[in-house]
Nucleic acid binder design. Sequence first.
DNA 1: GGTCCGTCCTGTGGGC
DNA 2: TGCCCACAGGACGGAC
Length: 309
Amino acid sequence: MPELPEVEVVRRGLQSWVAGRKINEVYVHDARSIRRHQDGLADFIATLQGTTIIDIVRRGKFLWMPLDGVPGGAALVAHLGMSGQLLVEDSTAANEKHLKITFDLSASAAKPEQLRFVDQRIFGGMLIAPLVPTTDGAPGGQGSQAATVPQAASHIARDVLDLNFDIESFHRRLRIRRTSIKRAMLDQGLVSGVGNIYADEALWEAQMHYARPTDTLRRPDTVRLVDALSTIMDRALAAGGTSFDQLYVNVNGASGYFSRSLNAYGRNGQQCHRCADEGKLSLIRRDAFMGRSSYWCPACQRVPRNARF
DNA sequence: GGTCCGTCCTGTGGGC
DNA sequence: TGCCCACAGGACGGAC
């Protein structure tokens, strides 16, 4: 599934291929993909036609494209969910099985004329939202100089790759929570862009158990965790940047990052890499947690006292 | 207000 | 072979 680094690769691709181009026509093949657009299908199409995509901005896993030509300022917002793809293709290319929305773009030398939103599981979607000022006055996200964010994404916190991510504020907010660290990491209002896979990987990296109460975190613990998240995402971004075709802005969960080496996620019953390096035998465990799976090493991620399951 | 759970979805794989 | 069911998970709405 698209994680934050994959979404950043998509953003960069769209910046090259789509920014500055006009939307001539919009075809919505499955209205479920715009169900979060409150004003309905007809409004979605009518608002977009004739506008120009100014930029491509990302915060966490949210992407948005500020639009020129919408009174008051607005952006086309996209979330890829678990299976979403944004593809730049020629109109002669066959429709994908799960094609949901097609945008016909203005002609541009040697650039394909369509942007397509493809989504198998329909956990993702698109909508148009007004742009509102950021609460901290800093640019809204990666790829933007403007201190604005779509209203529909204004509750989303900054991610750890954002230059304006405030670790002090993050630590304070963690401390006053009465929950476990993994729940907090998956709360997009605290820190964005962390999914189940990277939560487990970062916790393994930081040698922290997923059920550790957030109010027991000391500042060095928070720093260690944020460092772990940054390291893992930087690593994935560096690896993923080369795994995509230059022409197609392709997010495909089956390729790219799933070949990356994981230390915890999906390794139930396998030897912990860190423990193995230290000559110890410890097998990664899988627990059901939050209706999801949590993978962790019982030896180097000790269950804390007062664990909050 | 904070926290947590059910729901939305479809493809895959295991069991019968 | 074909059917059924469990499972995977990001984000949101609603219950508590």
